[in-house]
Design a protein around this nucleic acid. Structure first.
Lengths: 112, 112
DNA sequence: TACATATATACGAATATACGCAAATAAATA
DNA sequence: TATTTATTTGCGTATATTCGTATATATGTA
């Protein structure tokens, strides 16, 4: 249960919830998240560090950028994120993030 | 999104998660929860107060006892609890609570 | 090498959280 | 009314969380 409680602690911050929902759609580097979420870089970076520390995301440097990937192996946690995403129309902030994500034209270069 | 984040904040404490999972099965009074969860009464009471303050449970006095009911109208929140319950075998603490709940023989008297 | 860009981190301030213990309140009963 | 049982609450303590700002680190490029 501890891991599940830890997961909920992670989700109990709006910034981290938004990050996880975005990474559910696609891997993103820090500056892409800053732009999409309209948040400062240290703020995003700090929350990503927490997410990485508990293993819910993983990072991969590609040149100048560090890309973050959702890393949920747990089926319960995965289903929780899916439930939120499939009800995104009920959460304006999340919906707006996803909209900016979809409308984004300039992406940092992925190697793979 | 705020309400959802608030919900996760509630779930990010093991005691409250256990309470919600129990109340998902049946309404319970404070002393029944104390016995099932093997926790002190002030501890349970304080967490119930938080849950009531944010509206996730409601209370109803019946004589000497105050019974608490799960009060989740939100479909996303409901589904999250359902997901946890239907995977309870993966969470020993929750499973043990439910087991003690099922084996319980003496109940405080319900009026309705 | 010098500089720009991307990312992480240190630090201090403000705030929140959980807990144990003791005491207060409320209802039931002798 | 006095007592017991059920529940809540006040208080002090320890700890955790978030944020902004400034700075450090790492990589790419001129």
């Amino acid at each position: 249960m501890d891991k599940l409680v830890e997961f909920f602690k992670v989700l109990s911050d709006g910034t981290r919830l938004r990050i996880l929902v975005l990474l559910f759609h696609k891997e993103l580097c820090v500056c892409e998240m800053c732009e999409i979420m309209e948040e400062t870089q240290p703020k995003i970076s700090r929350h990503l560090a927490k997410l990485r520390d508990v293993g819910f995301v993983r990072d991969e440097r590609q040149g100048q950028w560090i890309f973050y990937y959702l890393n949920l192996d747990d089926i319960v946690m995965k289903r929780i994120i899916e439930t939120i995403v499939s009800n995104k129309e009920r959460y304006p902030v999340l919906q707006k993030d996803i909209q900016r994500f979809c409308l984004k034209t300039k992406w940092c270069e992925r190697k793979n």
